[in-house]
């Protein structure tokens, strides 16, 4: 059910776009209104989420430490796995954001007969994640050719590099294949590894199916069904210049692709995909491990009302004397 429901949801979304455009002819709704709404939800939702995170106090340094912390001078320390200064934290964050260092550290355990418990390194998740994210980034940059005129140099570079094999026409992009393979891997490991299947939820499968559907619809549109690409760019340029219009002759496959992308954008701030912003705000990564050197004051500390002994004695001095209790001040 956790797997089936998201699959049905993505298929339903595809059908909605198909029926809406092909059947009901609601091109303006699917081509203009929904993309705008989705982008707004994405932008506002993203900011709201990050501000929410920002308002949570982090009273204590809680970095996940993966190496020897700064200690006595003769103890060799690990700078980037247990950073002490801001500079070291920045390098640690760069390694995390660009190279997924924490996934590289992934291990697996298995229990053999004997019984023998074995630990081993497992790099496949790291490799799959890296392939997936970098393909997605390249695809995103490539798509800027529909949103800019004239097209900036880095978009042209991305396209040239991506199609450098010059296989077929329209030129085959490697990332199209890599992203399909990577998403398939990321999905199949959740299905075939029992421990992962156990912890996988509908909101793990849904983004995977959605991204798979987006990639497939894009690939179908580019290489097989073909659509009026000049019309598509007129539509997208209309969107970004706030003069939306719906050119004639754009195939329904484009609207399906656009609707699925809009869904992804609108869903983004409420999902686990927010790790895009979250990776920068994880207190287990972005804090220096300097608890022993720097005093961190709990931000929600308020002035505590105290009643000192001096005040107590001032208040009850007479009664104390009457009862024969010793007092400090006469």
């Amino acid at each position: 059910m956790r797997l089936l429901l998201p699959l049905i949801a993505v298929l339903a979304l595809t059908l909605i776009a198909y029926a809406g455009v092909s059947g009901a002819g609601m091109n303006y709704l699917f081509g203009v209104f929904i993309p705008y709404a989705a982008f707004l939800i994405f932008l506002i939702g993203f900011i709201r989420r990050v501000v929410q995170w920002g308002r949570s106090p982090v009273p204590f340094r809680i970095p996940a430490t993966c190496g020897q912390e700064k200690s006595l001078p003769w103890v060799k320390r690990n700078r980037f796995d247990n950073p002490f200064t801001t500079g070291e934290v920045i390098i640690r964050m760069l390694l995390e954001v660009f190279l997924f260092r924490s996934l590289f550290r992934n291990t697996k355990v298995d229990l053999r007969e004997g019984p023998i418990l074995r630990y081993g390194s497992a790099k496949w998740l790291w490799l799959g994640a890296l392939a997936f994210h970098y393909s997605f980034l390249t695809i995103l940059v490539r798509h800027l050719r529909f949103f800019t005129e004239p097209i900036p140099f880095f978009v042209k570079w991305a396209e040239t590099l991506d199609g450098i094999l010059q296989v077929g026409v329209p030129a085959f992009y490697q990332t199209d294949m890599v992203i399909l393979a990577a998403v398939a891997y990321l999905f199949l490991r959740r299905v075939f590894v029992p421990q992962l299947r156990y912890i996988s939820l509908a909101n793990d499968y849904f983004p995977l199916f959605l991204i798979l559907a987006i990639a497939l619809s894009g690939i179908l549109m580019r290489y097989f069904f073909k659509t009026n690409i000049v019309g598509v760019k007129e539509l997208t340029m209309g969107l970004v210049t706030f003069s939306p219009k719906i050119p004639e002759g754009i195939g329904v496959i484009f609207y399906i692709h656009l609707f699925l992308v809009s869904t992804l954008f609108a869903y983004f701030p409420f999902s686990k995909l927010m790790h895009l912003g979250g990776v920068f705000l994880s207190p287990t990564r972005n804090l220096a491990n300097n608890n022993r050197a720097v005093r961190h004051i709990n931000p929600w500390n308020y002035p505590v009302k105290v009643h000192t002994y001096e005040e107590y004695e001032d208040e009850f001095r007479e009664h104390m004397k009457e009862a024969g209790l010793p007092v400090e001040k006469e």
Partner: peptide
């Protein structure tokens, strides 16, 4: 918002 601001003032 790069596509939004980079296209300001340019007639497509």
């Amino acid at each position: 918002t790069f596509p939004l601001w980079s296209n300001v003032g340019k007639a497509a």
